[in-house]
Amino acid sequence: MTPPATLGDHQRPPRQLDRNLGELLQELRVMQTGVQILTGFLLTVPFTERFHDLTAVQHRLYLGILLGAVITTCTIVAPVCYHRLLFRQGERDWLVRAAHLCCLGGILGLGVVSAAVVYLVFDVVLGGSAAPIAAAAVALAFIALWAAVPFTLRDRER
Rank of each mutant, 00 (worst) to 15 (best):
A134P: 06
V117C: 11
D18N: 12
R15Y: 03
F51W: 05
I65H: 09
R29H: 13
I37K: 02
W146H: 09
Q26N: 15
V112S: 01
L120S: 03
L61H: 11
G40S: 07
Q11G: 00
P150F: 02
T6D: 00
M31Y: 13
I143Q: 09
G64N: 12
E157Q: 14
I133G: 05
L104G: 10
G8L: 07
L28A: 04
L7G: 01
G111T: 04
P132K: 01
V112T: 03
I107R: 12
L95A: 03
G34H: 05
V138W: 03
L25Y: 04
T75L: 14
R29K: 12
T44L: 10
G109I: 07
G127M: 03
R15E: 15
F142I: 06
V30Y: 13
F142E: 02
V149I: 11
V57K: 11
L43T: 04
V113M: 10
L108F: 14
E27C: 10
A115W: 01
R88I: 02
R88S: 13
L25I: 04
S114I: 11
V149N: 01
A115G: 06
L42H: 08
P4A: 00
A144W: 09
F51T: 06
F151G: 03
W94R: 11
L38G: 15
R92D: 00
A56R: 07
A130F: 14
V121R: 08
I76N: 08
L95F: 02
L66Q: 09
I133F: 07
A147L: 13
H52A: 15
T44E: 08
A148T: 12
V77P: 03
R92P: 00
Q36R: 14
V35T: 15
G8F: 00
T2N: 02
L67T: 14
H59F: 05
L85T: 14
D155K: 13
S114V: 06
A130Y: 15
F51K: 05
G64V: 02
P150C: 06
V96N: 00
F151P: 01
